[in-house]
Amino acid sequence: MNTQTIPPLAPDAPVVLEMTNISKSFGAVTALVDVSIRLRQGEVLALVGDNGAGKSTLIKILSGFHQPDTGTIVSQGKEVRFASPRDARAHGIETVYQDLALIGDLSVFHNMFLGREYHKRVLGLNLLDNRKMREQAQLYLDTLGISIPSVNSTVDLLSGGQRQCIAVARSIYSSPKILVLDEPLAALGVRESAHVLGLIQNLRQQRQVSVILIVHNYNQIFEVCDRINFLHSGEIALDASTADTSEEELIRIVKSGLGRKAIDAAAAQVRPGPA
């Protein structure tokens, strides 16, 4: 695997998001304990951890789908509280979920514009402007280089990779400040993966979008990410810059999985990330 060189993050890049001491339980199950993460402008942060470590819960809190039991979220310097996904989106946080928030029975272009439909007034009625949405969707997918048979086809009938591309395209359409991707490469072939990773790089460099990426494939982390946060049993066990650690080291730490102390000891061996 060729490791791309990541242009270093500007040292004065402002912090765009700070989640502090977030805890969340579902009944008797504790999902997150005092988790804190921070994200700077244009930074790509990898969130890694085994199944059930709390990654999904954390991003669902960030995207307003769950509310934290304790802890604060500061976005663009202001403390915010997200009661719904709508709230989070209004603050420029877009999320693409693992379970692909696409509507199988709707066409590609309707999916692209769901929740932000174009309208036209016909005889005083506020009707959907399907033609405009169709054209815009086609144009937009073309600029991203995503090829599907037709924007009219129902999402159900597309392949997994095509669906993932539509989902990512959907989420970056509104030029978010923070993009959260939950395992965006899970169902993709090599070429499509490279395409999505390229998209992430572009977003980061050209639009200064910050990205939180949940990934399981560690070499992909080193291709695009600035920093890694390792979640273990609902706690952050490692916070390191990709420049300061290596794939082998990361895998060793993740594999050890012996609980907090062992992880801490291992984490102490690599230099901590920028404070």
């Binding site: 995207s63 789908f65 719904s84 996904p85 709508r86 989106r89 999320t95 979920y97 379970d99 692909l100 928030a101 696409l102 509507i103 199988g104 029975d105 709707l106 309707h110 769901l114 929740g115 439909e117 309208h119 506020n126 009707l127 959907l128 399907n130």
Partner: peptide, 24 residues
């Protein structure tokens, strides 16, 4: 077929979790 209401109605029945995540 031609309104946001209809689109969101279909979305609700097709994939309720996904629709909710999108903000329907």
């Amino acid at each position: 077929n031609r309104t946001t209401f209809g689109l969101h109605t279909i979305a609700t029945g097709s994939n309720i979790i996904g629709a909710r995540e999108i903000g329907v």
